[in-house]
Design a protein around this nucleic acid. Structure first.
Lengths: 327, 327
DNA sequence: ATATTATGTGTAACCGGTTACACACTGGAA
DNA sequence: TTCCAGTGTGTAACCGGTTACACATAATAT
């Protein structure tokens, strides 16, 4: 392995000069620069990031902390983060937290020892002291914030309004809203949006809390549909729940979308594969991840951040679980 | 930050003794051990992994190279790898290669500079020189091998035989096999399994190549079904293709499973959400990832590896796209 | 009693960089 | 002419560990 010393020797300068040249710090004469460039080229010198880390106390590692990569929402996020990180020369460390504060804390401490450059976090624990005291750049994704931490999320409330209106516009008169878990901030925003839209309509509705889990959702919807057969629209806070609803509906002999219309939230690929295809409020998950990564890197590199909150717009995708609009 | 020197001073011994104690290398008296333990405790000393890496030329980083975490097959794999890595004290770096040898090479080189401990790779490029010359422990996952690299995969051929027989046993007389891309080793093994099973039956069949992609599969199946309406069974080499087939079938007015039975391959969660639920040959993806991680860590830690090939058994999951067995 | 071997410890070099500091030189300002 | 700021460079300390080596002592073999 060739080291900075080899380069210095070959270029006929000191290691300090080589280092200054490589880091573009301090003065280096044109002459020296040329000699160093040549030596680097000739020796195929590549800087050792570990050695550098040791004295700069910095690295180009980014920690991506998310509950569970297995949850269909996160892979795309991870992909976006990794793509952006790569173009800026950063490396992504994957951390599945299972929403467990202990695990999160553990990751943070372990990685801080490696001089990690920053974290992108999807967690409810963001106000926990290990974040506040982390003393490392952080960006919060999807979930809420400690006021000081930049946050990227979908425009959940707006999306919920769009989704609700989509059902209203298509003639639903009795809507079931599948509300997500109360600990989840996005779920609350969606709930708010739904309430706002439905209340200004004066139509009948009901709200049932329902985890973002297929089988549970199916069961819950099956029950509710039996209790109240007049339900003609379901707005689920997640696509997985919507899929559960769709299954429950078809098992209950409801025709979708003729008897019952369904709208999901998320826009995961699976929605397209269902029959009929799932109408949904799609998040631009990739974009969220990409923005989060960029904002984090800006922080890391001490560039000015223009905003503290980034809301990524959401898009209504019409497929087969809703009817065509009544004019 | 407390360093090994602080510990040495407080314990009244030299740094060498502290280091020897911490690494359990060389001789350390009981007395010294006690003093060091106490000092570590009192100062809350934690070893700096970067400094250690610098001279040992080792780290506890594991690179996970896969085509695209967004592909539903991989998150579970990643999860398993990360889980196992965590319990052994390793950290996982996520690398999306897009099956691009240049990107793979890049990751390998970048990470080798960080003294990465080893790689888990899902790639077709495994014989490329940058793997052969990588000079780092590697485990191949799902895809094939350079002879020398330990490999973990599903029992694809056996699985294909099971899937085919499931259709045969349920009375299919004209089966369409959706073969996966020819570059993919698992796809070839599945093809082999299908051929073996079907040929010993003397029944009619046809094989169509079809990417692991929903919309493409749907289109291909729609066309084939139109050309040959007597097809009464489809065995798809992936669940995504099976989903496409299911959609095409229902759009073509075929009743599943009455007129047409479908079996997929993979066992992704989405299969359950379809209507009817997808019968499929399920891989134990988590297990594959976990085994790969364990085998890699064994290699890293110079423990003996008992095998070179690990075949993880596959399981037939019967759901609604197949009929009950004719006795 | 002497030669080995095993045990225990500290000093200092080293891993491969960065950077504080000292020093030299140049050119313009006073 | 003198002073100072700006430019350019090298020496050596330092980041926080590991480890080769030298040395001392205790235990065992001969």
């Amino acid at each position: 392995m060739t080291t900075i010393k080899d380069v210095a020797k070959k270029a006929g300068v000191s290691v300090a000069t080589v280092s200054r040249f490589l880091n573009d710090s301090g003065y280096v004469s044109a002459e020296a620069a040329k000699a160093v460039t040549a030596a680097v080229e000739e020796l195929k010198y590549e800087l050792n990031p570990v050695a550098r880390s040791l004295n700069t106390k910095k690295s180009n590692l980014i920690g991506l902390i998310l509950p569970d990569i297995t949850n269909p929402f996160f892979p795309e996020l991870a992909r976006a983060v990794e793509d952006v990180a790569l173009t800026y020369g950063y490396t992504v460390v994957l951390c599945n937290s299972d929403e467990n504060p202990e695990k999160e804390k553990n990751y943070i401490e372990t990685l801080k020892k490696k001089y990690i450059a920053g974290f992108i976090v999807t967690s409810n624990q963001l106000d926990a002291p290990h974040y506040a005291n982390a003393n490392v750049p952080i960006v919060a994704l999807d979930r809420t914030i400690n006021e000081k931490i930049p946050t990227v999320s979908s425009n959940n409330k707006e999306g919920a309004i769009m989704g609700t209106n989509a059902l209203l516009k298509r003639g639903c008169r009795n809507i079931l809203f599948l509300r997500g878990p109360e600990e989840l901030n996005p779920a609350n925003d969606r709930y708010e949006g739904f309430m706002e839209a439905i209340q200004s309509s004066n139509l009948q509705y009901q709200v049932v809390t329902c985890p973002f889990h297929f089988a549970d959702s199916q069961e819950i919807v099956a029950r509710v549909l039996k209790e109240d057969p007049t339900i003609d629209g379901i707005f689920a806070s997640s696509d997985v729940s919507a899929a559960g609803a769709l299954k429950a509906a078809s098992l209950a002999g409801k025709r979708v979308p003729e008897d019952l219309q369904i709208v999901g939230f998320d826009g995961v690929a699976m929605g397209e594969m269902l029959s009929p295809g799932l109408t949904t409020v799609a998040q631009d998950v990739y974009k969220m991840g990409a923005i989060a990564a960029r904002v984090l890197i800006k922080q890391i590199e001490n560039k000015k951040i223009d905003q503290r909150f980034y809301e990524v717009p959401v898009k209504l995708i019409i497929r087969g679980t809703t009817r065509s609009v009544e004019e």
